[in-house]
Computed example of a mutant assay.
Amino acid sequence: MSLVWTLIAAFLYTEIVVVLLLVLPLASPRSWNRFFKSKFLAMLAQQAHIYFFLIMGVLVLFLLEAIREMRKYSVNEHTGDVHLNVEMQHSMRLFRAQRNFYISGFSIFLVLVIRRLVTLICAQANLLAQSEASMKQAQSATAAARSLLEDKKTEKAKEADEDQTLNELNQLRERVQQLTADLNREKKDKEAVKSQAESLNREYDRLTEEYSKLQKQITIGGSNSKDD
C-alpha cells in the first residue's frame, strides 16, 4: 500500500472511530453541542465548507482512480501463453484497485454520515433546550394560575377585612387630627411664653439701665457733697 492510500485508510479508521463516538451513548447531545461550539471548532467552522469540499474532492478523485484501475485490470486481455507470474501480478493489482475503491468509497460515505450526525446532534440539543424552556414556561404558567386561584379565595376575606381597616383608618385620622390640634395649641402656648420671656428680658434690660443711671447719679451726688 502506497503512502497516499495508507493516509486514506488511516482517515477511514479515524472516521469509523468518530462515528462510533457519535453513535454510542457516551455523552449527551448538550455535551456534544458544547464541544462543537467550542472556540477551537468555532474557528474551524468558519471555513468548514472549504475543508469539506476539499476532502470530498480528493476522495472522489482517488475513487475515480480506483474505478479506472478496476476497469483496466478487469478486462481479460491475456492469452494462454501468459506466464503464471504475470497473471498473479495482474490479479494482485486488481485486488489493490478493488481495495482502494472500497477504502475511498467508504471514506466518502462516512464523511457524509459524520456531517449528518453532527447536524442531527446539534438539532437535538436545540430541541432539548427548547423543550426545557417550554416546560419551565408551563410550570410558571401553572404556578401563576394557582396563585390567581388562591388570590380569588383570599379576596373575599380581604373584602371582609376592608371594612374593619376603613374603620381603623377613620379612627386613626380622627386621632391624628386631634393630635394635630393639640400640637397647634402647644405651639401657640410656646410662642406666647416665648413672647412673654422676650418682653420680660426687655423690661429687665430697661430696669438694669435705670438702676445703672441711678447708681451713677448717686455716685456723682456723693462726690459733690464731699467736695463741699
Rank of each mutant, 00 (worst) to 15 (best):
120 L>Q: 08
65 E>H: 01
46 Q>F: 09
131 S>F: 00
160 A>P: 07
210 E>V: 12
57 G>V: 00
226 K>F: 12
184 N>R: 10
209 E>S: 15
191 E>H: 00
174 E>W: 03
79 T>W: 03
81 D>S: 14
37 K>D: 14
224 N>R: 12
20 L>N: 01
119 T>W: 07
87 E>K: 14
124 Q>W: 06
207 L>A: 10
120 L>S: 06
61 L>V: 15
179 L>M: 01
104 S>T: 15
99 R>L: 08
131 S>Y: 03
80 G>E: 04
16 I>E: 04
199 S>L: 10
192 A>E: 02
30 R>L: 13
186 E>P: 02
4 V>M: 14
167 N>R: 05
48 A>V: 10
32 W>G: 00
136 K>I: 11
207 L>M: 02
223 S>R: 12
9 A>H: 06
163 D>F: 09
22 L>Y: 02
28 S>N: 10
34 R>A: 00
138 A>G: 05
161 D>P: 13
12 L>A: 07
222 G>V: 05
24 L>V: 02
106 F>S: 05
73 Y>A: 05
58 V>K: 00
157 A>I: 05
50 I>V: 15
111 V>R: 04
20 L>S: 01
131 S>P: 07
198 E>T: 15
45 A>G: 14
121 I>G: 03
53 F>P: 10
223 S>Y: 08
68 R>N: 11
81 D>V: 15
217 Q>G: 12
31 S>K: 04
184 N>T: 12
212 S>P: 07
35 F>S: 12
45 A>N: 08
137 Q>K: 09
55 I>K: 12
182 D>S: 15
218 I>D: 09
141 A>W: 05
22 L>T: 04
106 F>L: 10
142 T>G: 11
189 D>K: 13
16 I>D: 07
221 G>D: 05
225 S>V: 15
53 F>L: 14
51 Y>N: 00
35 F>H: 08
132 E>F: 01
